Amino acid sequence: MKAVGFRTSLPIANAASFIDIDIDKPIPAAHDLLVKVSAVSVNPVDFKIRQNSAKDTVLEQPKIIGWDAVGVVEAVGNAVTLFNVGDLVYYAGDITRPGSNAEYQVIDERIVGRKPGTLSDEAAAAMPLTALTAWEILFDRMRLSPERDRNKTLLIIGGAGGVGSIAIQLAKTLLGLHVIATASRPETIDWCKKMGADLVVNHRNLVDEVRNAGFQQVDYIVDFVDTNAYWDAMAELIKPQGHIASITGSAAPVVLNKLKNKSVSFSWEFMYTRSTFQTDDMIEQHHILNRVADLLDEGVLETTLTQTLHGLKADTLKQAHAQLESGTTIGKLVITF
């Protein structure tokens, strides 16, 4: 089968940063689906892994990445109970296994959902990773609920990106929060408003921006950009007994002491935790994806697709990664096969 991968970590402008390869079609294990992939989306995790997973080495076997896909189930393992051959599915994948930049992929059924019936393949492919990340950070890590938190304030740092775009929608439609999103360009400001943000502020001089908008402090903050770059601002803006959560990690220690006197909680969110550690509740991602599919089909949520490229080939992946690495992407970029 055709696939796109890499043998060493190179700048995206390098001709060998991605290579076209031909490999054997994978065989599904007990709980696996064999999916014929029709569309994938590209996320920041893709280029970060490409840049860092094969530094100063040349892999014997090319590494295939990609963690968003839509496709049709072609075969199933002998323990599969959730899907049948011919089902249309979407999923974000498992960072410990080969990715979706290939004609076929095997994937554990417990982290797969039914494809939203009203969406095209490309519109659906934009959603799994970001929807799972946003859902988990709001509901599983911060444990927000409409009964307790309706009309409270949520500051989303990085509102126009893939995760921010769906987090705005979930926070508004399911939780009833007052959403303040950050953006700086006219087009990203407009996008955040389109997604449902009540207020958009500039991420530069964040404390002043939020306070000049009439909010001395906010109940909750989620960071989708850079934990340490915004740490002091978040610690200043969060209300006592509030909650901050982030997906971005940190190469340097996070100064949690800044939250102590306010008794503020802090959480990390990593969408691959459940699949990486085969947690007892791994099947929750199946349920979340099905719930998101329902909300998309009902029109409660909308796809965050903004750009589509075509073709499973190295040149297409190079173009997609170059776009994401520019830091100017709004919403999600998808590749159809």
Rank of each mutant, 00 (worst) to 15 (best):
V112C: 03
F139Y: 15
K115V: 08
L144F: 03
D108V: 05
G113M: 10
A134H: 00
D140R: 12
A124D: 08
S120Q: 09
D108G: 06
A123E: 15
I137P: 05
T133F: 02
D121R: 10
D140Y: 11
V112L: 02
R114C: 10
T118A: 15
L119F: 04
L144Y: 00
A123D: 13
A124F: 06
V112S: 05
L129K: 07
M142V: 00
A125M: 11
P128V: 06
M142H: 09
D108W: 07
L132I: 15
M127K: 07
D108Q: 01
M142S: 02
G117Y: 09
I111H: 00
D149Y: 02
W135F: 12
M142G: 07
G117I: 11
Y104H: 12
R143S: 14
F139H: 12
A134C: 02
D108K: 01
A126P: 11
G113W: 10
V112F: 04
I137M: 14
L138R: 01
R148Q: 14
A125G: 12
L132H: 06
G117P: 02
I107F: 02
T130W: 08
T133A: 03
T130D: 13
V106K: 01
L144K: 04
A134S: 13
Y104K: 05
T130H: 12
A131T: 12
L138Q: 04
S145Q: 03
P146I: 09
P146M: 01
D108P: 05
D121E: 14
L129S: 09
R141K: 15
F139A: 06
G117R: 14
W135K: 00
F139N: 10
Y104F: 15
R110L: 14
